[in-house]
Amino acid sequence: MSESDDLDLRSLGDDDLVQQMHDDLYDGLKDEIEESVNILLERGWTPYDVLTKALVEGMRIVGIDFRDGILFVPEVLLAANAMKAGMFILRPLLAETGAPSIGKMVIGTVKGDIHDIGKNLVSMMMEGAGFEVINIGINNAVENYLAAIEEHKPDILGMSALLTTTMPYMKVVIEALKEKGIRDDYVVLVGGAPLNEAFAEAIGADAYCRDAAVAVETAKEFMQRKHNQRGVKGTSAA
């Protein structure tokens, strides 16, 4: 039908193929992304290079156009889905090769709150940026957050609340982290319609993220700072 249907991905050189992958991610073409990831791996690319140069870079462009109102939610979801399919191939290989981690996040909506969609959007955009995301769902008590960070040892803890009655629970979680003396081991990002910067500051979170695109940018900034502080890339303290 269209010319892209006839395009033989294997006929492209590496640079053109990576360009094509950026376009395919933008268009949310899952099958094409899977095929291209496999081609690059066959050509001897490291899983880490496929991830960063092809997928993350492609999703960075998607993120920019989403932020600027050029792409919209259904398109971003398709793009994220294509990215996810690529990640499904890469993840075990990344673990095998001991590639540096871009970052890990545990994210969930707080207790008493069942809003799901905004948090899922953040989760998908974070995955798009190459983060490993553990989405623990809605209505999470302190114990759920503690258990998840204990198990997954993330860099970032994300909390979502869409109600003025449930947002104070974020403070309860942060206090629990303080009590256990582990508050500073994690970057705590919060989001949701009724929140603002002042609230985030008042409860002791590291930042308020207005939307999914801001969440990704903020998370990247904090990871950058973390790496700089340690002076070593990608080593994660136990």
Binding site: V73, L77, I117
Partner: peptide, 8 residues
């Protein structure tokens, strides 16, 4: 009602 952009 859910966002139709996220849930078709």
């Amino acid at each position: 009602v859910m966002p139709v952009g996220a849930l078709g």
